[in-house]
């Protein structure tokens, strides 16, 4: 269950809207932040806290790609493979991530340190290839730069 601080945070969000359904997306976001991903249990907590039907919570959560429905590693890498990134070598970077860190698209490394998701264009075509690690943005990627960047994420 959510701790007191988180409950307070959700209740504050809830108070902003006349309809408690409006607080659903931000609350799911908090749940994901707290638990790392949206388990059935986590969604039940959200449903209970907002007094919303469980099915509606899961229906909403399942619509959005950025909500995770299975456990993810401690850090989430989201690499773009759309046109510009692809031309500038993002596919090679995928191989590198697999070889160096043992993580495949939609998978998690054995040590639970990284999960990898291929994402659609993040608007960094001018400085491609680009990726997000958790919520941080990184561009002009090369194998070496990725190694340097990922050093910071344990």
């Amino acid at each position: 269950m959510f701790n007191e601080t988180v409950l307070k945070e959700i209740n504050e969000i809830r108070a902003k809207y006349p309809d408690r359904r409006s607080a659903l997306l931000p609350s799911l976001y908090i749940a994901q932040r707290e638990f790392g991903w949206l388990s059935h249990e986590a969604m039940q907590f959200v449903a209970r806290t907002l007094n919303l039907p469980e099915a509606e919570v899961r229906g909403t959560a399942s619509f959005y790609a950025m909500f995770k429905h299975k456990p993810v590693g401690r850090n989430l890498i989201q690499l773009c493979t759309n046109v510009s990134c692809m031309i500038l070598g993002s596919e090679g970077l995928l191989d590198f991530l697999n070889k160096r860190y043992g993580v495949e698209p939609d998978g998690t490394s054995g040590d639970g340190r990284f999960s990898l998701v291929i994402m659609e264009c993040i608007g960094a075509c001018g400085t491609a290839p680009a990726m997000l690690v958790n919520t941080d943005f990184h561009d002009n990627l090369t194998e070496q730069r990725i190694e340097e960047i990922l050093e910071k994420y344990k």
């Binding site: 039907p53 469980e54 899961r58």
Partner: peptide, 15 residues
């Protein structure tokens, strides 16, 4: 019940 997923993968499911 709700519609789970989206697009081509949409389907009706209980929680």
């Amino acid at each position: 019940i709700s519609i789970m997923g989206r697009g081509n993968r949409s389907r009706m499911e209980p929680f």
